[in-house]
Design a binder for these strands. Structure first.
Lengths: 217, 217
DNA sequence: GGCGTACCGTACCGTACGGTACGCCCTTTA
DNA sequence: TAAAGGGCGTACCGTACGGTACGGTACGCC
């Protein structure tokens, strides 16, 4: 395997994407059925091709995680004028998106794989998942928070800390419960209510102009 | 969480506890070296005994999780008169304890195992971990919150929801980052500061008498 | 002393899975 | 039409690991 000692960063070909989707499918369906044979069968390709393209099992997993990550990145849509309503809306948007992601079966499966892998030294899927999940959304939210502070809508010293509070208010115990196998499926409505509550609470903590605290379930 | 749904709840004998501790040790050191052979070697017992005592690998894992859970339960210490200072102190106590638990290597390893197991149908370690972690602390915190409400220090409609907010404010992104393999070791001091901040924020959201908001990093 | 029980150590078995080799088909190119 | 190459299917190999069997030892009991 000459051509790429580190890893195939290049966007996978259509056929390769199909393979990676097959991997995702298997992950979601049943994690411990995720064998090279099963992938080859599902993707209708030979194992030899798998090894040629991805090096080894780990490479395949890594490529899959990258592939999934590559299509999560929603477009930015950077700042217009920021008033209280837009700020709130932006934050709600982030919260809803994030909740939808972490409650999705693909995310759950992927995180399980990455966590199972973590600590087992080699090729950290965990790092990739973190970079494209938790940290990616952090980098997208923080500018919004800072813009809010710039126009006097928010007050905080450390945007990272502020974001982490926001993250905690949004996610709470949901992700860990899902990862540990609790059923717990939220419908879109519940997600929206959760996001509302989280944003309300966040603004109550960091907002300069306090809206009357309506929700308080 | 009933103490005995099905199997062998009886407290393990001293020898058996030693075996389970060996399992915990291996888990923490290197998860994928956690083989029946390795356990037998580490615990200086025969595999046959392992199977006799615990049935199969799953039984051993389950017993280990239960064993670890059994020594986490700190004593209650139910309510004295509850004033603002004691309430705050109790909450800080919970927050510190919880952070110490989830940042501990044993917890991380155990959660990784349970998560890896989850979704793989059979014998849910995830359920046990949840019951003795997230839910156990919930059942211990909620009475405190309710006591706080009873004396007018807190205001909320749903103690479960209030607790979940507390949980989110305390844990934020810490557990998922650790599980995914980030280094991130908090010293006792940071944990205490984190707990302080979380309690401040929680009281700011749910407290009736607002203490001046000092921390706001 | 003889016997049963509990347990250690180790050898052994079956299987599942990661990884490799090879034959065949199909498409492309000359 | 022929040669070449990419890729599919399948058979195969080595090994690691869950689980079992068996010999050997210590101990308690009749």
């Amino acid at each position: 395997m000459q051509p790429s000692p580190t890893a195939e960063q290049d966007a996978p070909s259509a056929r390769q994407q199909a393979v990676l989707d097959a991997v995702l499918g298997l992950m979601v369906e049943d994690r411990d059925q995720l064998t090279m044979d099963a992938v080859a069968r599902r993707a209708s390709c030979s194992k030899e091709t798998l090894y040629k393209w991805f090096g080894d099992r780990d490479g395949l997993l890594t490529a899959t995680v990258r592939w999934q990550a590559s299509r999560v990145h929603a477009g930015y849509d950077t700042a217009q004028v920021l008033d209280g309503a837009t700020l709130r809306e932006r934050l709600q948007d982030f919260a809803v998106t994030w909740l939808e992601v972490i409650t999705g079966p693909t995310s759950v499966a992927l995180n399980r794989i990455a966590i199972a892998h973590a600590g087992s030294h080699k090729s950290n899927l965990g790092g990739i998942v973190l970079a494209n999940g938790r940290f990616a959304i952090g980098e997208r939210v923080k500018p919004v928070l800072e813009a809010g502070r710039a126009v006097g809508l928010l007050a905080f010293a450390d945007s990272e800390a502020a974001f982490r509070t926001f993250f905690g208010l949004v996610g709470r115990d949901i992700q860990i419960r899902l990862l540990l196998g609790e059923a717990l499926d939220l419908c879109g409505d519940e997600i929206r209510r959760d996001a509302d509550r989280a944003v309300d609470q966040f603004l109550a903590l960091y907002g300069q102009v306090k809206p009357e605290p309506n929700h308080q379930t």
